[in-house]
């Protein structure tokens, strides 16, 4: 069961998202209206800790638990970065959820999350089908 570790880490990640309420539409509205620090604190401190961790990994040439070299791929720019990013932002403010929180919402018992996930799958599928005709 080499995938069990990802399942366990996913459970922990889902608990954190849920207990910090970042899976809530209310919290996302509060963020886009600049009326609370909560979301900015969560995202900002997550990035800071992630950044320090990656620097430590790189500087100490840390390896994975299996002794592999740690590889970090560079993200490549294309026009989709901002066009797609803006489209996602519109959806983020509507649904109050990015993909991770959608799965956590479903687990927490919100029935509408099932519809949202199906709609998100339809969106990803449609993008995949239209990909060659979209500006890149």
């Amino acid at each position: 069961m080499k995938n069990l570790k990802y399942l366990v880490l996913g459970v922990l990640f889902g608990i954190i998202l849920t207990k910090s309420e970042v899976i809530s539409w209310w919290r996302i509205q509060e963020m886009f209206r600049f009326q609370a620090f909560h979301m900015y604190g969560v995202i900002g401190s997550a990035i800071l800790v992630g950044m320090i961790s990656i620097q430590l990994i790189k500087r100490n040439h840390l390896k994975t638990i299996n002794g592999e070299e740690i590889k970090l791929a560079d993200k490549k720019y294309n026009h989709g970065t901002w066009i797609g990013g803006t489209i996602f932002g519109l959806g983020w403010a509507l649904t109050g959820a990015c993909p991770g929180p959608l799965f956590a919402q479903l687990g927490s018992g919100v029935a509408s999350a099932a519809v949202l996930i199906l709609a998100a799958l339809a969106g990803t599928w449609t993008y995949s089908a239209l990909r060659e005709r979209l500006p890149m």
Binding site: F88, P99, G100, I117
Partner: peptide, 21 residues
């Protein structure tokens, strides 16, 4: 909220090559 919102999330994240995470 449910259908268009979810659709934009799925379409936009893939087009942008990633989401919040």
């Amino acid at each position: 909220f449910l259908v268009l919102g979810g659709f934009l999330v799925g379409f936009g994240t893939r087009y942008a090559g990633g989401c919040t995470s």
